[in-house]
Nucleic acid binder design. Structure first.
Lengths: 344, 344
DNA sequence: TGCGAAATTGAGAACGTTATCAACTGCTAA
DNA sequence: TTAGCAGTTGATAACGTTCTCAATTTCGCA
């Protein structure tokens, strides 16, 4: 069978077979125009018969580009870091970039230089930053990546404070949209069970809720607010806390669908009617949310498009960097989309 | 500031600064013993002051190994291909492997040679196969990868027919476990809403259900069975079909949690009590399933461990291949775990 | 017939690293 | 004294490709 010493066929083998120089083979492989058609055919025949394929590693080395993007995302975390959405992969593929993944596990230490060193050592041309927490340590790290190493970074979560362009969901707008919807439905005492306090997205959605409430002259003080953890547990606990604190309310804007799920479960246990006694709305349009009891109204975010845009931005930054320019890129803000179901 | 022509510092710069040869620098970088400690310190000082980092691409090229694994997974698909679980990333990292992702989108054409060519061109040392469908085209493709290209493949879904070791969930065992549990609870007319007919996992779970039913002398013919699509829609439709066909039954074993969710929703609409009139059990322990109405009993699969094992197997195969040996690796079968909640 | 331009081809260096082997130092044992 | 050996160090080739530039051939046209 195939002997263990079966060496890969290289451009040299093709050149020898076709009786031309390495350079000519290279030209044929890269579709250069300046090869006589007779020669081209001869070389192509050699390529086909030997089954030659270009070694991208060697090519990348000499061209000084890795055609690789680094992706820094959260591991177990809810926040969708894991949902390396197909927008990213599809767009990266279209640009000819491979993806190198670096996951940050919840119990890992705070990301430092070592955390991204592996990506830089493999010469990634750009980095997609998908960690949502807003630690100042991240900002310093990202700045070092862009300035010291000259590798552009695009954030897939909003992070204005760092001087990095981002592709993000309009969390503020989502908060406004969800809250206004509840108000239009005639609800007046609308509470908010937010995400964790340190999460940027959570803060923004909260701000949106508050904005819409105040705009309508409704109360949005801290007593109508409780922080959760993006999970059903937080939703359930938050709902009970608010009931105890306020006595009653007629609508819940949950920071996300899982939070809403937990909160609705608590409402069921208390014998409340949904949406009769309390209306619910979440954010995410998570799989299954259309089949909760009752089906949950929610705000959808188009993750695919966010991913697409982020990669596109990164590609432009890389291109500009290679041309020696600095580029001020406009951020991309993904518009929220209201999904109306029976819970509101 | 940093001039645009700022070249990366290479081993040459370090050698020049420290006044030694390239080779000596290389030795220090790689922690070789045979360097005098005085020299080592001098070189290390140069490395630190210049901020030198080894270019992994160049290293990989000359060593003929890419330290990269390819991951072939499903894009949008439910089946968990997306859930590039942290077991894989963590274990790959531990072995010093980077991951190159190749997603197969639902609307892509069937994977052929071109589909994996990008991975092979980048010289991946092994491939993790995470596509669940059992098309014979896959088998031929996988065989070509291993035999023609000499790149080992480990499947993260069961696929005995291909001569490739796998790390998989014991879907058959899960089916048996779920069904036996319902039987122990006194249920007798147990129907099964399976996954899509062409999915291997679905077939195996179905086989488990049938085995447990027949073992207990209960009916498990095709009238008690309907195929879904892994989603709530399929669950709802399947439930209604079975009701119409059989009149009644007292338990549902759903192919997965989302299917169960849809089926429970249908039961609610018909005014049935859960678990009073009908008991439900799913498979997956999907996020949120503990907060469905009522909380769903299910079978959990330890994805992290499956991922770990797969990478470990792949690493061993690669190691063996480099040593010129062929290795017959035992498969890894992940044991199902029963999660008891209120739906059964 | 000759000349310049265009088309075609190739030789050699380069990318940044490691592999291979030779060479140089001291030091010990005979 | 000298051979031998361990400990260090470096010169050179190699990995598989592309880049740069020069060389050769062909062609059109005066």
């Amino acid at each position: 069978m195939s002997s263990p010493s079966k060496r890969k066929v290289s451009i040299k083998d093709v050149a020898a077979t076709a009786g031309v120089s390495l350079q000519t083979v290279s030209r044929v492989v890269n579709g250069s125009e300046e090869v006589a058609s007779a020669t081209r055919e001869r070389v192509q025949a050699a390529i086909d018969s030997l089954g030659y394929r270009r070694n991208e590693l060697a090519r990348n080395l000499i061209q000084g580009r890795s055609r690789t993007l680094g992706v820094v995302c959260a591991g177990q975390d809810y926040l969708g870091g894991r949902q390396l959405n197909s927008g990213i992969t599809a767009e990266a593929e279209a640009f000819g970039y491979a993806l190198l993944i670096r996951e940050h596990q919840p119990d890992d230490p705070e990301p430092d230089d070592r955390f991204v060193q592996g990506l830089l050592d493999r010469q990634v041309e750009g980095i997609l930053w998908m960690l949502a927490e807003r630690h100042t340590a991240h900002e310093a790290l990202i700045r070092r990546i862009t300035e010291t190493h000259g590798v552009p970074v695009v954030a897939l979560v909003r992070s204005e404070s760092v001087g990095v362009p981002f592709s993000a969901f309009d969390n503020f707008g989502a908060g406004v949209m969800a809250t206004r919807h509840l108000i239009e439905r005639g609800r007046r005492r609308i509470v908010h069970i937010a995400g964790p306090e340190h999460a940027w997205d959570a803060q923004e959605r909260l701000r949106g809720w508050r904005h819409a409430m105040e705009e309508a002259g409704l109360p949005a003080d801290d007593s109508h607010l409780v922080f959760g953890n993006w999970g059903p547990e937080g939703g359930e606990a938050g709902f009970l806390t608010l009931r105890e604190r306020l006595g009653g309310f007629d609508a819940v804007f949950a920071g996300n669908d899982h939070t809403a799920l937990g909160a609705m479960s608590a409402a069921h246990k208390l014998g409340l009617q949904i949406p009769g006694d309390v209306a619910f709305i979440g954010v995410d349009d998570v799989k299954g949310s259309g089949w909760y009891v009752p089906p949950l109204s929610t705000i959808r975010r188009n993750r695919v498009e966010m991913g697409r845009q982020a990669v596109r931005m990164l590609a432009r930054l890389i291109e500009a960097g290679r041309a020696g320019q600095t580029l001020a890129l406009p951020d991309y803000l993904c518009a929220p989309e209201l999904i109306l179901r029976e819970s509101s």
